[in-house]
């Protein structure tokens, strides 16, 4: 049996809006995943360091400060530098579609906006992680 999916729910940037992050953390936990919550006001460095230390499959970024176009690409670059490109980066917040597709180009997965359900997010994470694990096994 494969190990449980490990997720880092990460608040990055200066905003303190943690309602979404906490709901998602509880939802993923209740769906059987192992969830690590980063706490508030993290830098991209701190998030990547936590991802390395906790050996996670997924980083779920929550950001509502409007700094997503600065901070998320920084995380992507650092993951690459740490040879962690197999980690799924997903997340949510107030992120305009235009920005989401831009972020997708640098390797970010699906970003969920207001109105997304927990089941939708759980389903997406399970499918993505399975696919990524298969790929890693093959190579």
């Amino acid at each position: 049996m494969s190990r449980k999916i490990r997720v880092l729910v990460a608040k990055v940037g200066l905003d303190g809006h943690d309602r979404g992050a906490k709901v998602i953390a509880a939802g993923l936990r209740d769906a059987g995943m192992e969830v690590i919550y980063s706490g508030l006001h993290n830098t991209p460095d701190a998030i990547v360091a936590a991802a390395v230390q906790e050996d996670v499959d997924v980083i779920g970024i929550s950001i509502l400060s409007g700094a997503h176009m600065t901070l998320i690409p920084e995380i992507m670059t650092m993951l690459k530098d740490n040879k962690l490109s197999h980690v799924l980066v997903t997340g949510g917040g107030i992120i305009p579609d235009e920005d989401a597709s831009e972020l997708c180009k640098c390797g970010v997965g699906k970003l969920f906006g207001p109105g997304a359900t927990i089941n939708e997010i759980v389903g997406y994470i399970i499918a993505e992680v399975e696919q990524r694990r298969k790929k890693v096994q093959k190579s």
Partner: peptide, 8 residues
Amino acid sequence: SKGEVGKE
């Protein structure tokens, strides 16, 4: 402050 100046 990088990326957050004048945003919210």
